[in-house]
Structures are given as structure tokens and as C-alpha cells.
Design a protein around this nucleic acid. Sequence first.
DNA 1: CTTCTTGTTACTGA
DNA 2: ATCAGTAACAAGAA
Length: 298
Amino acid sequence: SRTKNSALNKKMPELPEVETIRRDLAKKLVGKKVSKVKVAKKSKPAQPSPAVFIKNLSGKKITDINRRGKLLIFKLSDDQFLLGHLKMTGQLIFKEPAGKIIGGGHPYPKPDVGAPNTHTRITINFNDGSSLFFNDQRLFGYMRVVDEAEKEKVLSRFGIEPLTKNFKLEDFHKIFKNRSIATKAVLLDQPKIAGLGNIYVDEACFLAKIKPSKPANKLTKPQREKLFKAINKIIKEAVAKRGTTFNGFRDGDGNQGYYAKYLKVYGRANQPCRKCNTTLKKSVVAARGTVYCPKCQK
DNA sequence: CTTCTTGTTACTGA
DNA sequence: ATCAGTAACAAGAA
């Protein structure tokens, strides 16, 4: 069916996937200096323009890698920051220098990690011969170098961040007050809650037993609390499993995430609910494909 | 050919 | 100022 096939095409890095990439890349890139930046012909992701991007990044050293929501923030020398957003089909894949010998004498990498490929838009080479590839089939993602003020301006648009001390139940309650739109739409609203996308919103709603289409202001206080806890639990577990790979997501080494097999509803339309065996329904909520259990979720 | 997919922003109007 | 709703972006599958 269309549902099944289109689910196979989903490639959406959300908070857990971006966090997985951040952790991988932090181990590899911190301390390295950019020796060369190459931009492909279809160069939209290199912002504000390929020439300016290359100029801004060349020669910079990566001193730290942070994340806010789905946005990666590479701290650079000279108080500059490289912002990277993967949007729907972006990948960031690191490769050791060609022919580098690791451990027992095997050339690395083995196997092929999918970089560079036809969707490689930006290639960043480092002083030790290693490389970082920004692949993006659909050109929605971007990388750009900004100063501290611009970085703060961008970050000011992000809402409360799961898994941090700023993710407070009290603020969560406020976010749902006076909102007549669907609960799912509120959860996807990045300036309110950062990092959730279609996969984890549907999963969190299932765990909290809430119908994603239920108007946000109609949730009871216990329901909001349940949802708050569900988000923390799901995101934490997904990070531990290195994210969800449907087809496109790859970690910083080009490998898949393991959370897909733990999904309860996402991508499982017309399949039996893992709890009650009722056939899972698919509908459109907040202009997104939405899967839920009509019996478990109210 | 049309429709569908999704993260985010820009824009509309209330 | 804040909220709600929608078009736009873009490539590929069906």
C-alpha cells in the first residue's frame, strides 16, 4: 500500500538522531582544523552562498559541538559558530583519511558509509586528512557560519529542551494553555518545545494514551503530566538506541540507529496495536501523517 | 500527469 | 502581541 511504501521513505532526523550525530562527531572533530571546503554544483545548503561559506569556514578550528533541538552548533576558533540543520534528508558523515590503518591492520572505513555520493553537497577536509560530508537529497538542510550575536538570535527561537533542567512540567502546562490547536501541533511547535518531530510526537502521544488530534486546551492536567513524562522517556530511550533509521538516517559514521524496532505506532498504520491488537489508524493531524490506536488513545 | 511525503519559515488574517 | 492556518520549498516514489 501507499502507506507502507511511503513510510519506507521517511528520513527525518529529530532530537535523538541529531544528538547521536553530535556525540559521534564530537569525538572525531574537536581539535581538528579545516584545511579545505568543497561545495557541489547543487549548492543551496552552503549559506549564505557557496563562496562566502567557503571563506567563512576555511582555516577554522572546531573547538566544541553542541545541539539545540534539531540544530547542530559547531563552536569554531575566532568566536565563530557553524550552524548545521539536516531538515528532512540531511546527513553528516565523517570519514577517516583514506587508507588509514586502524587496529589490526584493516583499512578504514570498511564498509562504505555512503559518502561521498551523488547527494554530497558540502565536503569539509581537515588538517589530518579526515573529511566530513554533508549529504542532502532534497536540499532543505543548510550549514552556515555565524558570529555569537547571530547564533544567539537563532537560538532565541527555540522552546524548552527535553532532557535538560529547562524542561519543566510547569512550563509544559503553560504551553498547552489557551491553545485550541491539536496536541500534536503544539508538540511540533519548535519555538515552544524543541526537537520533537513526527516520529517521537506520535510515539509520545501513544505512550501517554492521548489522541494526537485532541485540542491542546482540552487535555486534563494529569494528561499533560503524562505527556510530559512520555516525551522524556521516549527521547531518552531513543537517544540510548542511537535514534531511528527508517531508511535515511545515518549516525556520524554512516551507521543506522536501532530505535525503529521499538516504535509502537509510527510507520505501523493498519497493523495491530502492540498493546490491545486493535488495528492502528492513520489520519492527518497538523498537516502530518499521524498513526494512533483508536482504542488506547483518547 | 497528479498526489503524497516532512521541517521550517514566511506570510496571511483574526 | 499572539494565535491559527496555509503556501512554499525540494526530490522522488507511486
